[in-house]
């Protein structure tokens, strides 16, 4: 069964600025943040001797934290803010009722609107940021795409826990805990679920393949979390375990 149908997308598009993001306020803020990021990347690109730095020190740390940690966190905070009233005012009950299929396509659309906006922003900014290393070639595109799984993961984690606990602040707390734990442990403790595998470059030291596995795992887990979140009748119910 298709999650999206043309008619659902049409309804979503028609009501996005009146229902879900009044006058596009949050979308404008997101685009504004991404514009500032772009300006920063244009003014302060990575140094010319970036590759040499990698070779000498064996790590990207602090250079790539911007795309591995800072931007995904911003995106996750935007997702938190976008869905905050749903859980604060219990509006999610209403949307659950108006989900006529197995998955809430409206919820997926709302999540995707912000995640896709941030992804596009990241792709453009990243290309400018690394223009001294590679620009508008396959390498630059691959480097930029490798940054997206972090963004997907944090945005999926925050929404998943908000929905599971029906409490926005628990979602925020779990997402921040995951983020801070990964950052402090330099991405090592969470292994394949690490956000900082790139910034801290530890997988590169063993095998670049492990890094690719890490990226794929993040994308797959994000998709699973998103689908679990948007199911009308949850397959798992975390709050049930606490009520026993």
């Amino acid at each position: 069964m298709p999650i999206f149908t043309f008619s659902t997308l049409k309804i979503y598009k028609q009501h996005f600025f009146t229902m879900f993001d009044h006058k596009g306020k949050l979308l404008k803020i997101s685009i504004g943040l991404l514009f500032l990021l772009y300006i920063y990347c244009v003014v302060f690109p990575v140094p010319n001797e970036y590759i040499n730095i990698l070779k000498n020190y064996g790590k990207f740390q602090s250079i790539d934290n911007l795309f591995d940690y800072a931007v995904p966190l911003l995106a996750a905070l935007v997702i938190f803010y976008a869905f905050l009233p749903d859980y604060k005012e219990k509006i999610y009950v209403f949307f659950q009722f108006y989900t006529d299929k197995t998955y809430s396509s409206m919820m997926i659309c709302r999540w995707l609107t912000f995640v896709v906006t941030f992804s596009i922003g990241v792709l453009f900014s990243h290309m400018m940021y690394f223009r001294n290393v590679a620009f508008l070639d396959v390498q630059s595109v691959w480097m930029a795409l490798a940054k997206l799984p972090n963004l997907f993961m944090l945005c999926a984690v925050v929404l998943f826990f908000m929905h599971q606990f029906k409490n926005a602040y628990i979602g925020l707390f779990v997402m921040l805990a995951y983020y801070v734990f990964d950052y402090i442990s330099a991405g090592r403790t969470l292994a394949y679920l690490s956000l900082g595998a790139h910034s801290n470059n530890f997988y590169y030291q063993y095998s670049p393949t492990l890094y690719i596995v890490n990226r794929i795992v993040l994308v797959v887990v994000s998709i699973i979390l998103l689908l679990l979140t948007c199911r009308k009748h949850p397959l798992i119910n975390i709050t049930k375990w606490f009520r026993r």
């Binding site: 009146t18 229902m19 009044h22 009233p85 005012e89 219990k90 509006i91 009950v93 209403f94 009722f97």
Partner: peptide
Amino acid sequence: PQMFDMYHNVT
């Protein structure tokens, strides 16, 4: 629903 509410800035 029991606790009906909607986004406050929606007409």
